[in-house]
Computed example of a mutant assay.
Amino acid sequence: MDVIPNDNRKGTRNGGEGMNWVEYRIHSTHEGADAVSHMLTEQGSNGIVVEDANDRNERPKRSDEMGQPSVEHLPMEGVVLKAYFPESEQKGDAIRTALAEVQQRSDLDMGDLTVDTEVVKEEDWEEAWKTYYEPIQVSKNLIITPSWKNVQRGTEEVVVELDPGMAFGTGAHATTILCLQALEHIVHEGAIVIDVGTGSGVLSIAAAKFGAGSVRAYDADEVAVNVAKENMAINQVEDKVTVRKSNLFSDIEGKSDIIVANLLADIIIRMAPDVKAHLTARGFLLVSGIIEDKKTEVSKALEKEGFVVVETREQEDWTAILLQRGD
């Protein structure tokens, strides 16, 4: 199971009765999966769960996973993409119309694009994560683990504990792993870090534990903001990390030494003109959530704004790009 992050959803958590969500399941081909994912993002999905039939045989267990992931929920063929919307939004007709438009415009074999729905209670959704969320050895010195599991740790290891709840970002997706591995190398003692689209807060927590002096985490989703705050408390980094609501850079002030944004390619391109104003001279920008076909487009958009590509990291057809202010 992979999760493609974004930052748009509203909801409640631990402050009253949980709300109901509608899970929309769209069965596509591998070729058409990215177009469906993009459509769901445009519809306002906070994140997209990707269940790939290939993982039944090609990746029964990843080398960095410390437990055995379940594959029983995976489709027998193609890809199932899942998106969650509040039940009150009634997105069914809009999603089916958008799918039809995508299919008409595209030359790709996208399959039947069947849409199934199911009402999911917030507490049920949260519990579902525990079925296939195992500790992950991200690097030699970094472990990401669910807060309800105990892991043995070495004296030099950094351990990030997470309860993702209704926020996306468990540390398991390739886009997150790429960010974490890059952050481990660029975060210096006392660095100021901005995390755009923080989700569960995993990148902010890691940055704080890598030695950052101050981390400011932002998300457009109130649910994610609340979940991230809880995860800061679990990891005892509240003194270093502040979490606030902001749609990309709309409510962000001040500069930082490092900006990290694990979003999607089109969103990164859209925010490109706003990044430089929030980054110190020679500061680093780390972006991820980029499919292979979009990496050149993203690089060019950021280079146009005065950034220089330092390195690219790739895993499972996903790319993270590390850039630096060129002035």
Rank of each mutant, 00 (worst) to 15 (best):
V243L: 13
I186F: 04
D293Y: 04
W148Q: 02
V79P: 14
T242Y: 06
I321K: 01
Q137D: 04
E65R: 07
A206K: 00
P164G: 07
V3R: 05
V160Q: 02
N226V: 04
V223L: 03
G78Q: 08
V151M: 05
T312D: 15
I259D: 03
D55H: 10
V71N: 12
Q90N: 12
V49T: 06
K130N: 10
I144T: 03
V260Q: 04
D116I: 02
G18C: 05
E65A: 14
Y132T: 11
V22T: 05
I143K: 00
A167H: 06
I186K: 00
A182W: 00
K140P: 00
D266C: 05
G306H: 01
Q104C: 00
G289N: 12
R59H: 08
V22F: 01
V36D: 10
N8T: 05
F85A: 11
Q152W: 03
T296V: 15
I192T: 15
V49G: 05
K82M: 09
T296D: 07
G211E: 07
G44A: 07
I290V: 15
D52G: 08
L203R: 02
T312V: 11
V187G: 08
K245N: 13
N247L: 14
E87M: 14
A320V: 08
L99A: 05
A53G: 12
E311N: 14
G111R: 09
S256G: 14
S250M: 04
A35T: 14
V151C: 07
G92I: 07
V80R: 11
Y133A: 12
E314I: 03
F249C: 07
S299G: 11
V287E: 01
Q104R: 12
V241W: 12
K245A: 13
A220R: 09
T12Q: 07
V310Y: 00
G165S: 06
A277P: 07
Q68V: 02
K294F: 06
V227G: 12
I291N: 14
V225M: 09
I136W: 01
Y84M: 10
R105I: 00
H278K: 06
M166K: 03
G306V: 01
L81G: 09
K245D: 01
D2L: 15
G306E: 01
L178G: 07
K10L: 11
Q315W: 02
G165D: 02
G11P: 12
P146H: 06
G171M: 09
R313M: 10
M66W: 06
S70M: 13
I143E: 03
I48F: 02
P5N: 14
E126C: 11
R25S: 15
D2K: 10
A35W: 14
A167I: 03
L180C: 02
I252P: 10
M19Q: 10
E134I: 03
K245V: 08
T170W: 05
F284I: 13
V308D: 11
E161T: 10
V202G: 11
A220E: 05
F85G: 11
V223T: 08
P69S: 06
R216Y: 13
E17D: 10
V119K: 12
A265R: 00
